[in-house]
Simulated scan of single mutants.
Amino acid sequence: MAAPLPPEGQFHIEVIKLLLQVATSDDRVTREEIDAIIETARGFSVPLTELSALTRCLHEGQPLPPPNLSVLRQDPKAVLDAVHALVIGDGHLDESEIAMIRQIRELLGMAP
């Protein structure tokens, strides 16, 4: 049985879950988005088992697990920095991504 993750590790996993939600918000996931998410996960030292389980949902067309907003509210600026990096990283800013950013700000309790 795997040891429980420290709070910072759980926060990073929740950020990755959110990034996957953002990447799929426009009903298409680009190679650039996947690469950016994997790079972020590596930078956060997200365990490979966790990352594999999350990306398997994409490959198999399963619903993505929702991120834990109470965990994400611990550092909303870091969350938004990761989201912004993802949405501008592929060079395409879709209306659904803009709407998703607004919604994320609201859910995290941040002013518009």
Rank of each mutant, 00 (worst) to 15 (best):
A78G: 08
G61H: 14
V87M: 01
A41K: 05
V87I: 13
S45R: 15
E60S: 02
P6Y: 03
P7N: 11
F11N: 06
I101V: 14
G89M: 10
Q10Y: 02
G89Q: 07
L69V: 06
D35H: 10
H12W: 01
A99P: 01
D27I: 14
H12K: 08
R42G: 06
R31A: 15
C57S: 11
P47T: 10
M1I: 03
E95M: 13
M110K: 07
V83R: 00
L108R: 11
E106H: 13
E50M: 07
A78T: 09
N68R: 14
E33T: 06
L80H: 00
A36I: 04
E50D: 09
T24V: 09
A2T: 07
P47R: 05
R56F: 03
R31V: 14
L51Q: 01
D90A: 02
I104P: 02
L58W: 01
I38V: 15
S70F: 11
I98C: 05
D35T: 14
E95A: 11
L18F: 02
K77P: 10
V83E: 01
A41M: 02
T30V: 10
V83K: 01
I98M: 11
M1Q: 08
G61A: 11
E95P: 05
A111E: 06
D35G: 04
I13Y: 00
V46G: 12
M110R: 07
I38A: 07
C57K: 12
H59I: 11
T24A: 11
G9M: 10
L86V: 01
G89E: 08
I101C: 04
I101K: 13
T55W: 07
E50F: 06
L93Q: 13
D75G: 05
V87L: 06
A99N: 07
G43P: 09
E32H: 12
D27Q: 07
T30E: 03
I37Y: 04
L93F: 02
E33Q: 12
E60N: 15
S70A: 10
F44A: 09
C57Y: 04
L20I: 06
Q10V: 15
T49G: 07
P6V: 11
S70L: 02
I13D: 00
T40L: 13
L54V: 04
I88Y: 04
P76Y: 03
Q74A: 11
D94N: 14
Q62F: 10
T30Q: 08
L48D: 12
L5I: 09
G91H: 05
P76F: 01
L69A: 03
P112D: 09
L19T: 08
K77R: 15
P65L: 13
I88G: 12
E60I: 05
E32Y: 11
V87W: 03
L51F: 12
H92A: 13
F44V: 01
D35M: 00
T30N: 09
P47Y: 01
I98T: 12
H59Y: 14
I37P: 03
G9H: 03
D94C: 08
I38C: 05
S70Y: 01
P63H: 11
P47C: 04
L18E: 00
P4T: 15
Q10T: 14
P7H: 10
R42E: 02
P67K: 08
D26P: 07
A78M: 03
A2L: 13
N68F: 12
E33D: 12
I13R: 06
R105P: 05
D27F: 10
V87E: 00
G61V: 06
C57M: 13
L19E: 07
L107I: 14
D81Q: 06
I37L: 09
L69W: 10
L80Q: 11
V46A: 12
E106A: 15
